[in-house]
Design a protein around this nucleic acid. Structure first.
Lengths: 126, 126
DNA sequence: TGGTTTTATAACCACATGGTTCTATCGTGG
DNA sequence: CCACGATAGAACCATGTGGTTATAAAACCA
């Protein structure tokens, strides 16, 4: 069980602003494909493709409600990705970049903290 | 400053196992292009391309030592990415997936914790 | 000076990706 | 049953990506 391919798929899925926006939308609850497609200046099949990418990465799962196929978020892959990143952040912090990272961390609180405290809406495409 | 494009580039850069392995290598300290290329069954220009991607994402910066261009890690974009992911994990945990996420979290400690505690070597490619 | 090392660039190829339109399918509701 | 609404799939196009080889540029070493 490599896990590497899962990370590949997860990071690749997250690399697109439309898909991140879809996740943002989905974070507020389940939604159908048409609902998800509505806010975007792009065709329904395009959204279906994006959903397939997200599904392949295990980030969304689909139900069945009449002719609708509602999408819901799956957090598992995100946890893997977060863990991977966190590991590296820690590793770097402990090693040769210790001082550097520390200084950075201190600076970052000023700038980032305020930013990060907003609700996690992407603002990606619009 | 949208930040969206930075996220695009960061996640896209992380989506490739070769590049993750390069980051892993780089986590142990600076390295030249040839040093980085050595462990891979792939040409030097291929590695140079990967490095350009990582550079574009701000994940590595390059120095100058005679004819060598040593690479070093930059943690800043990783922090952004981590923050983004963490925000969503939290958001989901607080909302409709609360119970679901909690159960998952408990399960995950058993499996993941042991895994995660190893040094963050990727094992990605070969 | 001339040769070697290190790296980047160019030209090329196969394939993936992100979008389109058109069409087929499936399930509901009159 | 029939039409409509929701979604997926096929075919197509442009562009990006990941790799190759061959070559050029920059800086060292003898």
């Amino acid at each position: 069980m490599v896990g590497s391919e899962l990370l590949d798929a997860t990071f690749a899925a997250l690399a697109d602003p439309t898909r991140r926006a879809i996740l943002a939308r989905l974070a507020t609850g389940e939604a159908t494909v048409t609902e998800l497609a509505a806010p975007f200046a792009m065709s329904q099949p395009a959204i279906s493709k994006h959903l397939k990418v997200l599904e392949r990465a295990g980030l969304v799962s689909r139900g069945r409600d009449a002719q609708r196929r509602p999408c819901r978020l799956e957090a598992r892959p995100l946890r893997e990705a977060t863990a991977w990143l966190a590991d590296y952040r820690d590793y770097w912090a402990e090693s040769y970049q210790r001082l550097d990272a520390l200084l950075d961390e201190l600076q970052a609180v000023d700038q980032t903290d305020a930013d990060r405290r907003r609700s996690p809406s992407d603002g990606s495409r619009g």
